[in-house]
Design a protein around this nucleic acid. Structure first.
Lengths: 233, 233
DNA sequence: CTCATAATTTAGTCTAGCTTAATAATTGGA
DNA sequence: TCCAATTATTAAGCTAGACTAAATTATGAG
């Protein structure tokens, strides 16, 4: 018997690989060995080995030296993990008082241990939420996931009104910082200005006193926004 | 790095061994290899190997061919797992609608993955409960555990009034069955009769219509009771 | 006290998943 | 076109934790 987890029979490692590959694929094209290694903080040869095992189990297809792509089964398993992770984050935040900058770690461990039943009970207790605390869409039980059409703040045109919709859950310092600026998913703002050469973006929040905030380029890149209204100047 | 879990650095296996050994010790004397093997459904030679590793890590003391005893550190770690398990069972039952006959499995997996922080948040949300849904005492954060002085139903004298206090969480069929008889921790009853030769025990419930129930010897052995009042006949 | 049986440990394997070192394939620039 | 740099793979080896088969120790009955 294998060191399996949450009742799928996949190991924790397998589940982590699938999730990472899913993410990489969604950023375009096949996932490269080095990118997987980087994402999981594992040496590249270890990835080669694991990729071989995963493709033998039919979870992905591997073209040597070219990269991997999830099969239908692989994608299903990956989306199941994504659902678990996001339901867990939502539950921990709204029912157990976790801050949005600290749930990621906890969910990262729990997602391998919870049963499907527990996830669905949590989802039910939450009223089947569609987004997690960072604004990321939660896949359905059937593995459907909304593909929101968002721009990073660096791409929102000056003068436009937009809404922050999604932030990565990975960097808790970043999350704490943007929360301190009054930014959370759902908060609207107007882009007041942007400096060239990867310079900062200035926005004015629409609520709470219409404060202006200057946001560095790196940070702005991490903020996924929905453009509500483009002021025609 | 080791396949560690909940932030203690101990592996899932280690945690399972400690818990099992703790249980066995509390049933008297040092835990024997074969008993550990039986409890964990593992072959005895595997236990010998693991016991060696655990004693090298200072979690237990091993006298070859005689058995093992937890060290202070081992007992602390074991009680931490017991606390986790019982808090989880209580939380799942009272906040997520699990039945008492199905929580054990879920808790068994989660106890290795949750952080101390999550356990304490759950405990707080529950009002720091002292007993789990099966009536078992929950160790404190400091590792103190109540040692309830109970008798199994087979030992409660005929004519006495008693209260069901604790049932093992391991056998979900048993749990379903006794629930169907109206028995739960806290339910009081009078022992009406008992047959010799490991025969059945007859009790009369004190509430809900004072129904009489006949309970087989095996089952009666599993019911831990507090004798409230011994009728002097 | 001795011997058979039961319990335990040792010896030798296996697998998953990781490592580093060495080899091979790909790609972009001159 | 060819070579250097990058990227990926193979090779060899490690650890935790399981297994079976064989050897050892303990125990209880005569």
């Amino acid at each position: 018997m294998i060191a399996d987890t949450s009742s799928t029979g996949y190991s924790k490692s397998t589940e982590d690989y699938l999730k990472a590959i899913y993410r990489l694929e969604s950023h375009g094209g096949p996932a490269q060995t080095s990118a997987i290694a980087e994402a999981l903080d594992i040496a590249p040869p270890s990835v080669s080995g694991m990729v071989k095992r995963l493709s033998e189990s039919g979870l992905l297809e591997h073209v040597p030296y070219r990269g991997v792509q999830l099969t239908r089964a692989g994608r299903r398993a990956a989306l199941r993990m994504v659902r678990r992770h996001r339901i867990l984050e939502t539950y921990l935040t709204s029912k157990l008082g976790y801050d949005w900058d600290s749930v990621h770690e906890e969910a990262e461990r729990l997602e391998h241990a919870v049963s499907d039943e527990l996830i669905e009970r949590m989802a039910l207790a939450l009223g089947n939420p569609r987004y997690d605390p960072h604004g990321a869409p939660i896949p359905t039980v059937d593995g459907d996931i909304e593909q929101p059409d968002l721009l990073s703040l660096t791409e929102v045109p000056v003068g436009a009104t937009a809404e922050l919709r999604m932030v990565s859950d990975k960097d808790s310092e970043l999350l704490r910082f943007i929360a301190s600026l009054g930014l959370r998913p759902g908060v609207g703002f107007e882009v007041v200005g942007r400096q060239p050469f990867r310079g900062p973006v200035t926005i004015r929040l629409l609520d709470s006193g219409k404060k202006e905030q200057v946001i560095g380029y790196e940070l702005a890149q991490a903020l996924q926004c929905d453009v509500l209204d483009k002021e025609v100047g």
